[in-house]
Design a protein around this nucleic acid. Sequence first.
DNA 1: CCCAAGCGTTCCATTATGTGGAACTCAATT
DNA 2: AATTGAGTTCCACATAATGGAACGCTTGGG
Lengths: 265, 265
Amino acid sequence: MMSVAKESARAKRDTGTLGKLMVLLDLVSHADGPMRFTDILEVTDQPRGTLHRQLSHLVEEGLLEIDTDGRYLPGLRLLDLASRSWGRNEFRVMAEPHLRALQGLTGETVHLGVLRGTSIIYLDKFEGQQPVRMYSQIGNASPVYCTGVGKAALSILPEVRVKALLEDISFHRFTANTHTAQSLLAEVEEIRKLGHAFDREEHEVGIRCVAAPIWSENLSLVGGVSVTGPAYRLTMEKLSQWAGPIQEAAARIMEAMRIGLGPRR
Amino acid sequence: MMSVAKESARAKRDTGTLGKLMVLLDLVSHADGPMRFTDILEVTDQPRGTLHRQLSHLVEEGLLEIDTDGRYLPGLRLLDLASRSWGRNEFRVMAEPHLRALQGLTGETVHLGVLRGTSIIYLDKFEGQQPVRMYSQIGNASPVYCTGVGKAALSILPEVRVKALLEDISFHRFTANTHTAQSLLAEVEEIRKLGHAFDREEHEVGIRCVAAPIWSENLSLVGGVSVTGPAYRLTMEKLSQWAGPIQEAAARIMEAMRIGLGPRR
DNA sequence: CCCAAGCGTTCCATTATGTGGAACTCAATT
DNA sequence: AATTGAGTTCCACATAATGGAACGCTTGGG
């Protein structure tokens, strides 16, 4: 019965029960605040009994929690699991000293990110001591098309993969400078030649950055390192001056991991 | 068939498929390094086909990843999920300024932790600028019985709950000073009177700490704040001097959350 | 060069598990 | 007291997980 006609371009394999639960976990995790049972019910459009049991199981495992008003929140068990994933991440560990050095050199915030799907996940961050602070957190996933690290990462991928990736993205216009599919493709070509990428207030007004790509030879790892800060302090000129040091830091990180030894692309 | 004779004291409710997958996730996350298929197979003692599908589903959802040698690692999706759980945690947010102040006052590392089951999960940490660094990470779960925050938390729970909790613990002797069930119960009684707890190198040789409990009136939240550092710098005398400020910080955090307004216990 | 062993993957009949409609409880409201 | 809304429990049924077996692929002897 129920023949499956629709075949999505990037057919997501079915993970059965787990897949359904992950949808809920994502929903609650990414919500702006605690969600009531009914809130979840109307979004997911499932029978009440089913939803109730699913949530109960997630709570039972500590992946979700219920506050005193009976609303659902992400659970702390996630923190425990994630801290292991983070603590042992080889890329992050190898990069750490170089990130510190870069932070010391520039005095601004340094990020390490890795490409996962159509997002950049930030693996580490070293903040400057300057009073102005930006919202940015380790573990956060940001769209690839409006971050320096994201664009740097794209510049490493072969064009076919970039185009395939763009298919899966819905472009949201965060600022007046945010890229569209066309303009992004053009800039990535540019970045490929330059060896580094700028974020000219494309994600958040008043925030600029420079980034350099980091990749393994077989492209199993693609990411980058960036220096970020407020536009009033980080003129484009200053950013350009830092492009060299950042590319050098990226090179040292790749060397430390003994990857990317071949010539560029 | 297969009648269930054994009824554990604290019967863990069955979470079906999810429960089985979480066992795997825990196993891989808490392992010392990447695990091969066969490693997992012999620990979990499941049919190969079953295990293979379970792992595939976890990988498909990004909860696990496979390295180039085909070994399993915790996945970065966990980081994304956890960062939300952390970023929005009300307790952590309310406590932050007070933790910073305490860090400034003492110059040593300040931790915020919360009781979850028989563990303390560290929600936040502010490091001193001193050169000696300790291994400790946000999100890490440590046993209640050998951390300052853990013992402080226990001192808030009614004795019956403490005893029930001890039932579920298997005491591991980390150092010569690590507590046993008996000595722990006795010290908790002491802490109840004092209002603060010490860790006298009970978890790690050379590391001491002072902690004060934080709790909500209905005990839906039980945790604490601590100041930790190397024994050579933190004499017991110095720790005692800080007990006051730490208890005051804890009081201010509770006030900020409008909890624990009633008299102690 | 061929065989065996180790490791991982796929298949499919069987069975455990999740599903969802409906009935039920408990508060808050009218 | 009746009504509505929110959450929970129940159970016949449908679906997804199970696990034994067979299948590939690589590695290393003999």
